[in-house]
Design a protein around this nucleic acid. Structure first.
Lengths: 168, 168
DNA sequence: TTACGTGCAAATAATTTGCAGTCCC
DNA sequence: GGGACTGCAAATTATTTGCACGTAA
């Protein structure tokens, strides 16, 4: 996990406090609208050419509040934003950013794959009714006791998903 | 399935003792090797006709030790056991058993869907190298502190996956 | 220029579905 | 006998890939 520097380099880019459907957690305000040159820098830092489409996607991903999206969702967002990119490129870009450690993949139900712009250790609520993914901001939830790991293995990561359904 | 060593090294971690595949409804201790009529009963109890293929699949699922499998794996097992069933039927059956509460679906990486014969609350290790799923038997791991659930929602289930990789 | 990036369409992979034939009660 | 079940193949869905063309360094 190569993330400490990346972490820092991105901190400013995030807007931790926007439209979380459910509990949003407050944090310091990001720069107004994540300027172009931040995304640019971000891309450079991981060795990706700041092309038109990558800039646009990076801007959509990190500039706005949206934090958990599928390729399809991002594709639609881009299209709506008059930034035509092909779906294939969206997939490619998401995968490249994930490999670079700027995004984290979350699988919750076998079908869709979500990408989370928050790469720090944290867990998720999954709203079964709306198929929405939301960060759990409560830090106490995090691993109070690590299970005994078998010989020869080490923990790569812990994924926890608390599935929620609407009370009837 | 190249896992014999892994099998052994992890044996201790499994809740071998509680081999109650038919748990939930039946509860009574499993007879030696889960004979036909147990599977039969199990199917009846959830309103599924005990057909040849369902009996065979049920026998493979609950009679043997294998506890986490994909449709493809079960299909292969069945074929090897000279019980020809179509892959579609395997999928159908797995879904029916899941709906009936006899199996639990676990998604770990977007691509494959695993079915777990243990439907009690528990978590998993996922061996990234071998793509194997193993129960975490440590009950202490379970919910030490439930996160604050947003208004109007209730927890449907908590899925935790501790991803392990081989130490280099 | 020149390797890298993009779009499109075709290719995969996993799973579901339509429907004709089969089996259980 | 009649509806539940099965198998096969075709259909879906999500994602990847091959390849000709465009573009940043």
């Amino acid at each position: 996990m190569p993330d400490v520097e990346i972490e820092n380099s991105l901190k400013v880019l995030r807007d931790d406090d926007s439209d979380l459907p459910i509990g949003g957690h407050g944090r310091q305000a990001a720069l107004t609208g994540c300027p172009w040159h931040d995304v640019n820098e971000m891309l450079q830092s991981v060795g990706l050419r700041p092309t038109r489409q990558r800039m646009a996607l990076g801007w959509l991903l990190f500039g706005k509040g949206a934090r958990h999206l599928t390729a399809e969702m991002l594709y639609e967002e881009a299209t709506n934003a008059k930034v035509p990119v092909s779906l294939a490129t969206v997939y490619n870009t998401l995968n490249q950013l994930t490999d670079a450690g700027l995004l984290r993949q979350v699988s919750v139900d076998g079908t869709k794959t979500y990408f989370d712009t928050n790469v720090t250790a944290h867990h998720h609520f999954y709203l079964e009714n709306s198929h929405e993914l939301v960060d759990i901001h409560d830090p106490h939830l995090m691993l109070q006791k690590m299970p005994e790991v078998p010989e020869g293995y080490e923990v790569s990561r812990v994924d926890m998903v608390v599935r929620l359904r609407k009370k009837r």
